[in-house]
Amino acid sequence: MTSDIDLHVGKRLRRRRRLLGLTQQTLAEQVGIRFQQIQKYECGANRVSAARLFELSEALSVPVQYFYEGLSARDAYLGEDPANIASDVLSKKETMDLVRAYYSMGEAPRKHLLDLAKSLEAATKPALRLVVQ
């Protein structure tokens, strides 16, 4: 029987794999298992052993602690917070594609794209109005 921790570890595994642009098959081959096992880890259906977590951390170039980031008794006590919402956004394929495309550009185009995104963000926010009494 899996727990919320298993789900959290699976989400972190999927996020990192996608960020690196790896398929489940490629990652599975790197650690010597079948891709179906990666699927089960990512959806939380199977618990990841300590030895396997170490192998996955090596294959994904992250410390083992990465899989537990954002998971603490304090987080559970506070309930859903913006960091958890942000992590959902980061786990989407569209976000990973955008990040990969952004970092494949040179520095100057990245700066222009960031400036454009900031200006679009500012344009969508309602203007602050001073109320004079």
Rank of each mutant, 00 (worst) to 15 (best):
M105E: 06
E94K: 08
S91G: 14
G70I: 12
Y77G: 01
Q65H: 07
Q39S: 15
L90M: 13
K92V: 12
S104E: 09
V9T: 00
E94F: 03
A122N: 09
L53R: 14
K40E: 09
R14G: 06
E94G: 05
G44A: 01
V99F: 09
Q36W: 08
T95S: 13
V31A: 07
A50S: 14
A117S: 10
D75N: 13
V9F: 00
Q133D: 10
L90N: 04
R16G: 04
L78G: 00
F35V: 03
L130T: 07
L22N: 00
S49V: 05
I85H: 14
Q65D: 13
E69H: 11
A76P: 05
A122F: 06
V64Q: 01
R17P: 10
L22A: 02
L113C: 10
R18H: 12
Y103T: 00
H8W: 15
R47H: 13
K93G: 01
F67C: 14
E29F: 04
A45D: 14
A86V: 08
L22K: 11
K40W: 04
I5E: 07
R100F: 08
L19D: 05
L20T: 03
G21I: 04
P82F: 00
P82V: 01
S61A: 15
S87V: 00
D97F: 02
K11W: 08
K125I: 11
F54H: 09
D115I: 04
Q24E: 12
E69S: 07
E55T: 01
E42H: 03
S87N: 08
I5W: 02
L22F: 14
I38S: 07
S72E: 07
G106W: 15
Q37R: 10
S3F: 06
G106L: 12
R16F: 04
K118N: 09
E69G: 03
S72Q: 03
A73R: 13
K93V: 02
E55Y: 03
Y102K: 06
F67Y: 15
V31Q: 10
L130A: 05
R15G: 02
K118C: 04
S3K: 01
T26G: 04
I33T: 03
F67N: 12
N46H: 15
E107A: 01
A83H: 02
G32Q: 08
S72L: 05
Q65A: 15
T23R: 05
D115P: 03
A51P: 01
P82K: 00
V132M: 06
A123L: 14
K118A: 08
S87T: 01
L114R: 02
K93T: 06
Q65K: 09
